[in-house]
């Protein structure tokens, strides 16, 4: 036990140190590299908190995708002129005091848990068997709180629309400005040929296993997005223009099927987003498969950014 607590303390010290360095670093580049490392350490923390589903999501999205996104932005921002002036010392002191106050408040809240800690875990487990799922987190996401999950997919699509809407009018319907490093027969091409088959298998596995073990649509979708981005960056596949009908269809297929099954529940089962008894598991897996596709495409396009070029005929 002591070894583990020493490990935990070491982990926390590392997380805090690297976290602070991403704030304090002078160079944006240094800060981003720190952030990616931070994301990976954080996913270890999530494993230590027995939340493997979250650990996977954090590693894939929090560290990986976010890191890639910000790194790409840093590369482009090197072109930016001028620098902003840092806040003056008194302002920084005041802000520091305020932030310390918030952190202290949170610490007090964490250090004073209720005497009998309330939990929904038994209730989740009691009812999980009905749905045929084995992973309680998937149960919460797709059975008990399916409404939140459904709406969150709409959030993802709106975010993508928001990103796209930043394009100049002249290139609307064009191709996202993802940087392509197309050098024939480079090592990157080799990687982009070798990795995607493996990655797709991993994504399918994650999506499939999510019903009973950690994993699921988010994690699978992220792997899918990463593979797609790799293939596009290596220049093996063209970045599709955002007006492609198949692209739009893929983006909404997950939420649409989710919504349709939810509405069918009003007729075939007892309520909206209720599954007919006995069919819960196959329906949820159908939803998860469709969502994996939609999430993969949405995350990939979010990372690719707004359209910047018109499609050449």
């Amino acid at each position: 036990m002591t070894i583990l607590s020493a490990f935990d303390i070491g982990l926390v010290v590392l997380i805090l140190g690297i976290g602070a360095s991403t704030i304090a670093a002078r160079e944006a580049f240094t800060a981003v590299i720190g952030f990616v490392v931070y994301g990976l350490l954080l996913s270890i923390a999530w494993v230590r908190l027995s939340a493997v589903d979250v650990a996977l999501t954090e590693a894939a999205i929090g560290g990986g995708m976010t890191g890639m996104l910000i790194l790409g932005a840093v590369a482009r921002l090197r072109l930016a002129k001028g620098t902003d002036t840092r806040a003056s010392l008194p302002v920084r002191f005041a802000a520091g005091g305020l932030c310390a106050l918030v952190a202290a408040g949170l610490a007090i809240a964490i250090l004073s848990p209720p005497e009998a800690i309330p939990t929904l875990a038994p209730m989740v487990m009691e009812n999980l068997a009905q749905s045929g799922l084995g992973n309680p987190v998937a149960g919460v996401l797709f059975v008990y709180r399916a409404l939140d999950t459904l709406l969150e997919k709409v959030v993802l699509i709106l975010a993508l629309l928001g990103v796209w809407s930043l394009a100049p009018d002249s290139v609307w319907g064009g191709i996202p400005g993802l940087r392509v490093y197309a050098q024939p027969s480079s090592t990157l091409t080799f990687l982009a040929q070798l990795l995607p088959p493996v990655g797709i298998v991993v994504a399918i596995y994650m999506c499939w296993v999510g019903a009973k073990e950690p994993g699921g649509a988010f994690q699978g979708g992220t792997v899918l997005a990463a593979m797609w981005l790799l293939v596009m960056i290596a220049g093996l596949k063209n970045v599709p223009s955002i007006s492609q009908p198949w692209l739009r269809l893929l983006l909404v297929v997950g939420p649409v099927i989710f919504l349709a099954i939810g509405l069918a529940g009003m007729v075939l089962a007892n309520a909206f987003l209720d599954y007919p008894s006995g069919y819960a598991k196959p329906l949820i897996i159908a939803v998860e498969v469709a969502l994996t596709l939609s999430i993969g495409v949405a995350l990939g396009l979010l990372a690719a950014g707004p359209p910047e070029r018109v499609q050449q005929q």
Binding site: S186, T187, L188, F190, L191, L194, L195, V198
Partner: peptide
């Protein structure tokens, strides 16, 4: 194996 693969290629790219 996957880390081997990606590590080797990323090393190549950085060196390049």
């Amino acid at each position: 194996l996957l880390v081997q693969l990606s590590g080797a290629i990323v090393t190549q790219l950085i060196a390049g």
